[in-house]
């Protein structure tokens, strides 16, 4: 056993499809290099499973550079694993040590049903955006980009929120499976910019209504969401969402 490789025991959630019940299955991962990403480690396990004729573990992933938001594993009880501000695909095995036992689970929330193994359906997020997470401008006829000066601090704050990659770790980590941070990020991003003002009330009312309809839990201001967020979107945006919704509710006719 050299210091650049390790052997691990994985406990992975296996579930055939949405209808069937799942269970944990143990696998040995041998000769894992410290330079591998967590997903590359799973690739290795899958190659071995395939060679043995066993169904490989299904997990979502795509860009493997921390921006598409597709990867989504709860690793030893923490969404995206032990590192701060890191997606699973950017988590490298040097964060683990030889002999570790690692439990791998899908995001668990009623609005994110498991499709297979570690793959979940996060289309609830899309539906939340579809009811109001946009500025209603059709293509063409936009004024010059510099016609509307925006203070740098506002643009920067909007960018802080706009960085959300829609991975769903906030929901996965929240003890209530609440989607507040996701909704707050979009409401905050557009609400901080002048372009987003005309639809500000409408947006927050619609998005919160859809969030509720999807069956997410309610925020209890704990902060687990921000703590696991790969883009470190802060609690401030949730406060802002609360404020916006309150104002919009009072003005609602």
């Amino acid at each position: 056993m050299s210091e650049t490789t390790m052997n691990l025991t994985l406990r992975v959630w296996r579930q055939k499809n949405a209808q069937s019940a799942g269970t944990f299955v143990e696998y040995e991962a041998k000769n894992i290099s410290v330079d591998m990403s967590f997903l590359e480690m799973l690739d290795v396990v899958n190659e071995e499973l395939t060679a043995r004729g066993e169904d490989p573990i299904a997990f979502d992933h795509d860009c493997r550079e921390g921006i598409c938001g597709m990867c989504s594993l709860t690793i030893n009880g923490k969404a995206h694993g032990p590192l701060e501000a890191t997606t699973t695909c950017q988590l490298h095995m040097r964060s683990f040590k030889n002999g570790d036992a690692i439990t791998v689970e899908p995001w668990r929330a009623k609005p994110f049903p498991v499709i297979k193994d570690l793959v979940t359906d996060r289309s609830a997020f899309d539906r939340i955006i579809q009811v109001g997470g946009f500025v209603s401008v059709s293509t063409g006829g936009a004024p010059d980009g510099n016609a509307l000066p925006i203070p740098k601090t506002d643009a920067d704050a909007a960018m802080d929120a706009a960085q959300c990659i829609g991975c769903g770790a906030c929901v996965a980590a929240c003890k209530n499976a609440s989607a507040m941070l996701f909704v707050a990020a979009k409401v905050g991003h557009l609400g901080l910019l002048p372009q987003g003002q005309t639809e500000r009330d409408r947006r927050v009312l619609h998005m919160v209504a859809q969030m509720d309809e999807e069956g997410f839990g309610n925020c209890t201001n704990i902060g687990s969401c921000s703590a696991v967020c790969p883009k470190e979107i802060g609690q401030d945006f949730i406060s802002r969402l609360n404020r916006d919704f309150l104002k919009a509710s009072l003005r609602a006719k």
Binding site: R11, F24, T74, G77, K78, A79, T103, E105, R108, A109, K110, P111, A173, K175, N176, A177, S178, G215, F216, G217, N218, T220, N221, I222, G223, S224, S226, A227, V228
Partner: peptide, 26 residues
């Protein structure tokens, strides 16, 4: 709210660790 919150996660994680939450909040 608490009942709804329970319903939002029908199947709990293995070992329920609540991350970054103060004891008072939990």
């Amino acid at each position: 709210l608490a009942i709804e919150n329970r319903r939002a996660r029908p199947l709990a994680y293995d070992g329920t660790k609540i991350y970054a939450a103060s004891f008072a909040a939990q």
